[in-house]
């Protein structure tokens, strides 16, 4: 076990733990935001750079600070390490910069995007973004495409976190999509319009932090904050059958996996409870499911912060709006 201090709070974690996971052990607002890291996917992280933190002291043996900010999701902790996240001005500035970079080519079409309300980029923009843009150039655009009959890809919204590529690599038996192209023209795509057809491909939608991959059976049906999330289960031969059904009245509008406050799939018997496409797309009758009860959305998101519900948003957010 090693001791690490994050924003003045000491925590003891196992050697080899990343700084981000040590911060998650503390919880609350010392946890850096993560757009690409996903603890259930091997090899994820390091790409989006939103989780950059300052290392004020490298370790007990070598207490020198590190010259550059480091990605907390891929930096293992050292004994005696001192990390500054929300207490670092440098982190604050550079996280704002990363947010700006992620948004310059983003269409900002939240009003018509199904992810709105549970979008990590929306949260990030809310907390670290500027009120205006300095980007005067034309935005990079792609046409939306169908990848398979159940999933729609809006490449314009993608932040290239590579999570969906990892889902396809690690969950399904054959990956037919990946990243094509380079630089700001890199895109998630299937080579020569291949269809993604696999029992677990729907999980790509769940891991997508933005609205790049959306569920075609749910698109434009409802804003997510009008729906009531209910924990539900069914006996399924392909997956654990434990899901969240999102209801409006007596109707099920969509089915997703059960996700924790970081937007990651919860564990079931020690394994991530990914759900299969049968459960997700083909069982939308209330009679298909045992409804267990309301699901508390314990996510750091604009919905759970009630930004849409409060009559006077200023009253609620005076601390955040500067």
């Amino acid at each position: 076990m090693v001791k690490v201090t994050i924003d003045g709070i000491e925590v003891e974690v196992e050697a080899g733990t990343t700084v981000l996971n040590a911060a998650r052990k503390i919880g609350g607002d010392v946890v850096p935001p993560a757009m690409c890291y996903y603890s259930k996917l091997e090899g994820s992280g390091g790409k989006c750079r939103t989780c950059l933190v300052e290392v004020a002291a490298g370790s007990a043996n070598d207490p020198r600070p590190m010259p550059k900010l480091v990605a907390s999701c891929s930096t293992p902790v050292q004994d005696g390490m001192v990390i500054k996240n929300k207490t670092s001005e440098k982190v604050h500035v550079n996280r704002g910069a990363v947010t700006e970079f992620l948004l310059i080519n983003h269409p900002l079409d939240c009003p018509i995007c199904d992810q709105a309300g549970e979008c990590h980029l929306q949260d990030l923009g809310f907390e670290h973004g500027a009120s205006g843009t300095r980007y005067e150039e034309e935005r990079r655009t792609f046409d939306p495409i169908d990848i398979g009959n159940k999933i729609k890809l809006h490449m314009n919204r993608c932040i290239l976190c590579y999570r969906c590529v990892m889902v396809a690599n690690q969950l399904t038996d054959k990956r037919v999509h990946g990243v094509l192209g380079r630089g700001d023209h890199a895109e998630i795509s299937t080579y020569i319009s291949n269809a993604i057809d696999n029992d677990f491909s729907g999980n790509m939608i769940d891991v997508c932090p933005v609205g790049a991959l959306t569920d075609k059976t749910f698109r434009f049906k409802s804003r997510v904050w009008f729906l009531k999330p209910m924990e539900a289960s069914r006996s399924c031969t392909k997956c654990a059958g434990k899901a969240v059904v999102w209801m409006f009245g007596e109707e099920i509008y969509r089915v997703t996996a059960r996700k924790d406050k970081y937007g990651e799939v919860e564990d079931n018997d020690g394994k991530p409870a990914w759900i299969c496409n049968d459960c997700r797309f083909d069982h939308k009758n209330v009679s298909d499911w045992n409804i267990e009860g309301p699901r508390k959305i314990n996510r750091h998101s604009v919905i759970s912060a009630n930004h849409y519900e409060k009559a006077n948003p200023l009253e609620n957010n005076t601390k955040k709006i500067k």
Binding site: L102, I104, N105, L160, R182, G183, D184
Partner: peptide
């Protein structure tokens, strides 16, 4: 042109 497009500052920043 040569940025690999993996991390956001380089992907978006070099193009910008």
């Amino acid at each position: 042109h040569e940025s690999c497009g993996q991390c956001s500052p380089c992907r978006e920043g070099t193009g910008w």
